[in-house]
Design a protein around this nucleic acid. Structure first.
Lengths: 362, 362
DNA sequence: ATGAAAGCGCTAACAC
DNA sequence: GTGTTAGCGCTTTCAT
């Protein structure tokens, strides 16, 4: 039993006694040759076990890979657990599907700085989802001579972007709390930089955050509460590296342990807020009577929990990113798409108790 | 302003006055040249804007794409909605990540027969998830000279497979219902073939089903209930093309409208079962007193609903498929991995009411 | 440690 | 309608 070298377009042509062009045409331009000849070519191909033009060779020649690369902040498997990331992914998939493009998920380990996967990906462009401004993978992507679209963060000079107005969105939420009368608030936020800092984040860390979305939201909160006469330096901000309900719960615990007087917990994601909700329950704090809690994103579980939050259209974001990347027409000028958000007033926010109520009951 | 042709490895070599080999080595085999020279190469690359070796050209040369193709039954976007498919995806992603391989999702439209995306995908192998035996995309995959692993269905001679023992799994469930005393049952199943048939599926259609998993489950139910003295020809089986809770609800409605006497609804997926549950509620049928309902898969929502079902390890399936494909070692003999399943007895199954109870209440 | 030569398998001008 | 020519950009023996 011998190992036959696999047939190639050239060997097929030789076998048939025609040129390689003809064989190529048989596959790619049926109208360029007689149906009869084409039939013969395909027939012989079958006989020889020729599987059709090699996609990689074709890509090299045509300079088209037929796929879009997707780079996520986290391990791939994380993305499949986070509802927001998932909706984004679905949107991207929708766009790819519509254009008949493959979706190449780039394997990334945020702990290690191995960017070879970015260099190895045979794709026509990249979508980068929500990474820190100093992410080495992002740098690797930008070094490649293919179009790129960044979703959410960071904003990069000359690179297309789709996102929301984070400042305006959370300012609306802040305004709501301020109007309700909250002056002693605490904040639970996501990772601010690539290093793990599970604990309080002082102003300096807030200001130098590498995750622009978190940074923008904190800055907007700062502005809003400062304008309402609150000294931002006194507002506790607790940061968590991992994005999970457990993180939200522990962050809430950490904050409440040290600042028993806060009347509202502003969380920069619904996941964190749901965790905070759980912690509040554990402590027998009534929400919203004893404590208001707000989230961000508008995921299904948040809605179910009646969370006061900001809804952002994640699926549309994904689709917009995909469309932007695939839309070869008016590429050139850097483009930016800002999607609308909507304040959702749920049942987890209300007026704070007065000092009296605090001591003598509602 | 002029468009400079992008730098290539060759142009870089020319600029430096060294051979292409040396430049290549600078990237791929740092130990093959002096640190000093390497530094100079990389430095010049930066200056010229050379992004490093082109991944496609490299793939052509090395015959390695560094990515795994994934072919799903449904639209890509569907996969991000179905919890079972999602868990599978996550498992595959985990395996890919571990091996530093990209995950290339092949865009497929099950309605159209466009298999070009399969031919265009630059991948080192394919994972095919749960497709009908006559799926043209599957045929396209098998025609390509790369290793393939099929998950669930269909079983293909000589192709690696990972799955569960569908017959045994559902037989266990059937046995449970039989033991409880159910003799008048109905079945809700998923798509049996590529054509849309939203309605009753007669025995002939069951027998000629192209989705082997559904076929096997129906056959096992047939066997179990026949052995219990039930005439399978009289058991209504309702099929749905779309896999959604809405489908489950409408299928349940269709079945119950025509067969008011069934005491149990066996669904071949949790999604369908959750829909059936909703329809039962709508009809003010108490579950399980008036009607037992069972599912299949063991998704989180099913557990939450207390569904009696069969749990299968979807994440492990994905991981196993990935590992099998990536494990180049003992390829050769076709391999088959069968994962264990577990019967979950929830609160949606109980003894059927007796005829008396039916008329006079519990 | 570095270079020369030989393709990987294919497609796109352009000629006939 | 079919063939000729010329690479796409890279890696890899094998010499030196």
């Amino acid at each position: 039993m011998h190992v036959r070298r696999p047939a190639t377009l050239a060997s097929l042509a030789a076998e048939l006694g025609v040129s390689r062009t003809t064989v190529s045409n048989a596959y790619n331009r049926p109208d360029q040759l007689s149906p009869e000849l084409r039939r013969r070519v395909l027939e012989t191909a079958r006989r020889l076990g020729y599987p059709g033009p090699d996609p990689v060779a074709r890509s090299l020649r045509t300079r088209k890979a037929g796929a879009v690369g997707l780079l996520l902040t986290e391990n791939l498997s994380y993305a499949f657990r986070d509802p927001a990331a998932l909706a984004f992914l679905e949107g991207v998939a929708l766009a790819c599907e519509g254009a008949g493009q493959g979706l190449h998920l780039v394997p990334v380990n945020p702990e290690r700085e191995d960017i070879t996967a970015v260099h190895r990906a045979g794709v026509d462009g990249f979508i980068v989802y929500s990474v820190p401004d100093d992410d080495p993978h992002l740098a690797a992507v930008l070094s490649r001579p293919v179009p790129t679209v960044v979703c959410d963060q960071p904003r990069v000079e000359g690179v297309d972007r789709v996102g929301i107005d984070d400042r305006a969105a959370i300012a609306q939420l802040a305004q709501r709390l301020i109007t309700l009368g909250h002056r002693k608030v605490g904040v639970l936020c996501m990772r601010l930089a690539r290093d793990r800092n599970d604990g309080f984040a002082a102003i300096d860390r807030q200001r130098t955050a590498h995750f622009h979305v978190q940074k923008a939201r904190l800055a907007a909160l700062n502005e809003a509460f400062s304008a309402a006469g609150v000294d931002w330096a006194g507002v506790p901000v607790v940061e968590r590296f991992d994005h999970s309900q457990a993180s939200g719960a522990s962050a809430a615990a950490q904050l409440l342990d040290k600042h028993r007087d806060v009347t509202a917990l502003i969380c920069t994601s619904d996941i964190l807020a749901l965790g905070a909700l759980a912690e509040a329950k554990r402590r027998a704090l009534r929400v919203p009577q004893d404590l208001s809690i707000t989230g961000f994103d508008g995921i299904a579980d948040a809605e179910r929990a009646g969370l006061t939050t900001v809804r952002q259209p994640m699926l549309d974001k994904g689709r917009a990113a995909g469309t932007l990347l695939l839309d070869t027409v008016d590429r050139g000028r850097p483009r930016e798409i800002t999607l609308p958000t909507e304040l959702i007033v749920g049942s987890t926010s209300a007026q704070p108790r007065t000092a009296e109520e605090r001591w003598f009951g509602p």
